[in-house]
């Protein structure tokens, strides 16, 4: 098991997500707390461009763990789709219908994930640390695309 204090490779999606959680925890703890509440008692597997990571969610914290093989929620997407959503090039519905964003879970867990993503976004648009985080995410995505 990998704890939230472990450092994933800098350009990985896990690193971006860990940094963004740390920013929310530091800058907007009430929103981070709400995010934890939304996801509490669930294990989540996130796959982004083949990189798999796991989240073990507790009522007051979220821990990074090895990607679970049988998670409560599986979320699969790619960096391009994430940026398309951020830039409003694609709606959430379009991404789902095109299967560029896949969510596998029980209905109540899908609802919890949706609420959590909305809470995360509310934090992201209020936290002054996010523009720089997003800039770095764009840069690492562009670098990865250049290497592909």
């Amino acid at each position: 098991m990998r704890s939230s204090s472990a450092s994933p490779p800098e350009a990985s999606f896990a690193a971006f997500l860990a940094e963004s959680f740390a920013a929310l925890r530091r800058d907007l703890p009430w929103i981070f707390e709400r995010l934890c509440e939304r996801l509490a008692h669930r294990e989540i597997r996130i796959e982004v461009d083949g990189e798999a990571l796991g989240l073990r969610c507790e009522p007051h914290d979220i821990h990074f763990v090895e990607a679970p093989p049988s998670p409560d929620v599986l979320l699969r997407t790619d960096r391009r789709t994430i940026l398309d959503l951020v830039d409003a090039q694609r709606t959430l519905l379009e991404a789902l219908l095109e299967e560029r964003l896949v969510v596998l879970a029980r209905v109540e867990d899908v609802i919890a994930l949706h609420d959590a993503v909305q809470t995360y976004l509310h934090g992201a648009v209020r936290d002054r640390a996010f523009p720089a985080l997003l800039r770095r995410f764009r840069q690492s995505t562009a670098r990865a695309a250049g290497l592909a």
Binding site: V86, D87, A88, Q118, H122
Partner: peptide
């Protein structure tokens, strides 16, 4: 059309 663009995810 919405700006900041990311807000389209919160107010689609």
């Amino acid at each position: 059309f919405k700006v900041p663009r990311v807000m389209a995810l919160l107010a689609p």
